[in-house]
Design a protein around this nucleic acid. Structure first.
Length: 223
DNA sequence: GGGCCGATCAAG
DNA sequence: TTGATCGGCCCA
């Protein structure tokens, strides 16, 4: 990377979202940083993403154990929204990647609200600062009004409530860092989390806590 | 049918 | 650090 003469590396694949999403999930996740996601009124600039592979290869993936009614959308074509409910109260948004049947996806973890802040605030009354409006997967989903109804809708052709768009300007790839994923039990050594270095809207990284009986491990770890 | 756990968030 | 809160998935 970075083999480019004169100036910072630019994200030259961002203009082809379809091609980007058709590829490997980690490549897609990196390329999605800087992209825009809008529900028509609220627009979020993605600052943090996380890649998940499909069957077998990735213990952290919802599709790891095989196809179920919940993860069904993951097995479909790229560019569709896979929305899941977790912790009894939160919705999270994924973008399906790869060929049909691959069941790979990118979790959208955080972003900056760049338009429609008033509506985003009304959806996220708990956040005291605008920087927190979409700082975290569930917060971002909430800011965009994402719930179960968004699951299975297309993000590329305007047929659904959400639309994904390329970055408005060049993305400085030297600022896009990668590291271990959040809350994933297996394969945490895989650096499949991508974020904009120094961006205040990036969620704080927490090493996976093995649950109870933890002991020494499990100290929150800010990067 | 029962029980456990989670790709989280916000408050103490 | 912990409680909230419930659907999915495994096992019986």
């Amino acid at each position: 990377m970075g083999q480019r003469t004169g100036g910072a590396p630019l994200n030259d694949v961002a203009h082809e979202l379809t091609a980007l999403l058709a590829g490997a999930p980690d490549v897609a996740a990196r390329g999605l940083v800087g992209c825009l996601l809008t529900d028509g009124e609220v627009t979020v600039r993605l600052t943090e993403t996380e890649a998940y592979a499909g069957l077998g290869e990735d213990p952290g993936s919802h599709a790891h154990r095989g196809r179920t009614s919940r993860n069904d959308v993951m097995f479909g074509p790229a560019g569709f929204a896979y929305v899941y409910f977790t912790y009894g109260m939160h919705w999270c948004l994924n973008i399906v990647t790869g060929p049909v049947g691959a069941a790979a996806a990118v979790l959208v973890r955080a972003g900056e609200v760049v338009a429609g802040a008033p509506l985003a605030r009304s959806r996220r009354t708990a956040s005291r600062h605008d920087v927190d409006l979409a700082r975290g997967p569930a917060r971002l989903a909430r800011a965009l009004g994402v719930d179960r109804s968004v699951n299975g809708t297309c993000l590329l052709d305007g047929s659904g409530p959400l639309t994904l768009q390329p970055p408005t300007g060049p993305v400085d790839l030297t600022l896009v860092r990668s590291g271990p994923r959040v809350g994933v039990t297996g394969g945490h050594d895989t650096p499949w989390r991508f974020w904009v270095d120094g961006d205040r809207t990036v969620s704080t990284y927490r090493r996976h806590v093995p649950r109870r009986r933890g002991g020494a491990e499990g100290m929150p770890d800010t990067h």
